[in-house]
């Protein structure tokens, strides 16, 4: 069993496009773009792979800041960028296929940007009410 090596490079948001372009030119494929919100900081990972060598670029951004789209470099990135927009509310500018918040439509807007949106356990009262309704 092999454990894959994890490579991260923290980069500035401004350098993102340049770095991604480098990756593209040296023959990497885009594996994914993933976002996570830790504290007030959005961490966006851009994962690339070339011949089973797996690398990540990581940028950090905060609420309200805009992130440039890399869809000019990797055409397929729209799917991830739209997803980040829909789930985290991070604004990504210049996506080639901009679903404008309609890729993943959620009841709660930008659910991952909100604290604790998983529903709390249904109250006993509620259950009781439902029971009477059903009957």
């Amino acid at each position: 069993m092999t454990i894959e090596e994890q490579k991260y490079t923290d980069i500035m948001k401004e350098d993102l496009l340049k770095n991604v372009k480098d990756k593209c030119e040296s023959g990497y494929r885009l594996v994914q773009i993933g976002c996570g919100k830790f504290g007030d900081i959005f961490e966006i990972n851009y994962s690339f792979e070339k011949e089973y060598s797996f690398e990540n670029l990581r940028i950090k951004t905060t609420e309200g800041e805009k992130v440039p789209s890399i869809s000019d470099i990797y055409w397929g990135s729209f799917i991830y960028e739209n997803e980040i927009h829909d789930l985290f509310g991070v604004e990504v500018t210049g996506i080639n296929l901009d679903f404008k918040g309609n890729l993943i439509r959620t009841t709660v807007k930008a659910p991952f940007n909100v604290k604790n949106v998983t529903k709390v356990k249904p109250e006993k009262k509620e259950t009781a009410e439902k029971k009477t309704e059903d009957n």
Partner: peptide, 19 residues
């Protein structure tokens, strides 16, 4: 855990599908 992100193969294949 803080964050679990799943990138599934279908997601990755959708751009190809569009093409």
């Amino acid at each position: 855990i803080l964050r679990e992100r799943v990138r599934t193969p279908t997601t990755a294949n959708i751009p190809a599908l569009v093409k």
